[in-house]
């Protein structure tokens, strides 16, 4: 082996080894949570209320709360994000306005989640007077995830072949008809994938809900959008750091982390599955 080949061999092997380490880290984290958490999971854990200072019982209110927040944020962010993505990709040419919106969207994507929390508290909780409520938390989470949905919509639209658009326009369809009947159906699987992945992200966010909706403990399920709720990520934070009896609530913490991880994994699997299944249908 020449020196050239030797140095390539050393470099490429170390890249391979390091990548394996990175993947290994992932498996250690997932494995740790899954192994410790799985033994806690039971029907009672999923459907029961927390009991005895959150050392026993279940996490139903947190699951329901996170469900409400996912639903609320998506009702707001999905339409707005998709419409915005369509406008940016289909209508705007590369002018200053487009670059400005691009820059602002990137900025929004880079804003730390705790700043979203501050903002949500100032605008929705105090200024608009929603108080700590599902609606305040959902709006905050919705704004946080908006850039992700816009970007995936744009990417999905970009991957649609231009010949389809020109073909449709040449047949006399209007721009809107072309988008609705030709472009969107082709881009649809990828847009949905983006939606599902952002659900995974929303379900795990803690900082934005700390001061807009999350409750330490609630004995009831929410009745209206102006109620506070418990949420899975905040519940895990509470159990891990400030529970009344940390040693005894540890199994509950493992279980909550497990449920969070399972949601993320399921969303990833579902996204991949849909991308493949719907992708085939469109290709025909």
């Amino acid at each position: 082996m020449t020196r050239k080949q030797l140095s390539q061999y050393i470099a490429f092997s170390s890249f391979t080894i390091i990548s394996l380490v990175v993947v290994g880290i992932l498996f250690v984290i997932l494995g740790f949570i899954i192994v410790r958490g799985a033994s806690v999971i039971s029907w009672e854990f999923i459907t029961g209320m927390p009991e005895e200072g959150m050392t026993k019982g279940g996490i139903l209110p947190a699951i329901v709360g996170t469900g409400c927040l996912i639903l609320g944020s998506m009702i707001f962010a999905f339409p707005v994000g998709v419409l915005s993505g369509i406008y940016m990709n289909e209508y705007l040419s590369d002018n200053w306005f487009r670059r400005f919106i691009d820059f602002m969207t990137n900025n929004l994507a880079g804003v730390p989640s705790i700043v979203f929390g501050l903002f949500g508290m100032a605008l929705f909780v105090n200024y608009l007077g929603f108080g700590d409520s599902i609606i305040a938390g959902s709006m905050t989470l919705g704004l946080l995830t908006l850039p992700v949905i816009i970007r995936t919509t744009e990417e999905a639209l970009k991957s649609v072949d231009d010949s389809l658009r020109t073909g449709s326009l040449a047949l006399g369809a209007t721009k809107l008809q072309t988008i609705r009947k030709v472009v969107l159906p082709v881009a649809f699987p990828n847009i949905i994938t983006g939606l599902i992945l952002s659900i995974g992200r929303v379900s795990g966010e803690t900082a934005p809900i700390l001061f807009t909706v999350a409750a330490y403990f609630l004995p009831n399920l929410p009745h209206s959008i102006y109620d506070q709720v418990m949420a899975l990520p905040y519940h895990l934070y509470v159990l891990a750091t400030s529970g009344t009896n940390m040693e005894e609530s540890r199994p509950m913490a493992y279980g909550t982390a497990f449920v969070l991880i399972v949601i993320v994994l399921l969303m990833n699997l579902l996204a991949n599955f849909l991308r493949k299944a719907l992708g085939k249908r469109v290709k025909m």
């Binding site: 990175v22 993947v23 880290i25 992932l26 984290i29 997932l30 740790f32 949570i33 989640s113 992945l197 995974g200 992200r201 379900s203 795990g204 966010e205 803690t206 900082a207 990520p233 905040y234 895990l236 934070y237 891990a240 913490a253 982390a257 969070l260 991880i261 993320v264 994994l265 969303m267 990833n268 991949n272």
Partner: peptide
């Protein structure tokens, strides 16, 4: 690659707990 992307999906509070 999907595994690395999965790493991005894990909620930060789970990292904190770990």
């Amino acid at each position: 690659k999907p595994l690395v992307e999965l790493l991005a999906g894990i909620p930060s509070v789970v990292y904190g707990f770990f």
